[in-house]
């Protein structure tokens, strides 16, 4: 898995590539918590277009990020869900919990 960050005004966009699993999810968790809790960025957007696979540890990282965002009054937004990611969020009954968009243009729009 690879994560790169783009910063636009008060928004950070993470482009995530590859598999998010037991081996790699700690890196995603660390990146999310740093932006939301330490850097106090008001809006963090995750581009998941290139995530081929996500397991329950990846979902747990997203949920933790969501909780921290709510606690700090920030927003965590997802876009570009692949079938694999959509399925695990559906199985977790989390599709309606997250703010999810089809593409970056929609995700960035206020």
């Amino acid at each position: 898995m690879q994560i790169s960050a783009r910063r636009l005004d008060k928004t950070t966009i993470f482009d995530v590539t590859g598999d998010v699993d037991l081996a790699t999810s700690p890196e995603l968790r660390k990146a999310l918590l740093h932006e939301l809790r330490d850097a106090r960025i008001p809006r963090v957007i995750l581009n998941l277009k290139a995530v081929r696979y996500m397991d329950s540890s990846g979902v747990a990282s997203l949920v933790e990020g969501l909780k921290v965002s709510r606690d700090s009054g920030a927003k965590l937004i997802l876009y570009g869900l692949t079938p694999s990611v959509r399925e695990v969020l559906q199985l977790s009954k989390l599709l309606k919990i997250f703010e999810i968009y089809e593409n970056e243009e929609q995700a960035i729009s206020p």
Partner: peptide, 18 residues
């Protein structure tokens, strides 16, 4: 319970569903 939105506790649920 899936209504309890918090990190973790999903692995066995995924296995049973899949």
């Amino acid at each position: 319970p899936l209504e309890d939105v918090r990190p973790g506790g999903l692995g066995m649920h995924f296995i049973n569903e899949c």
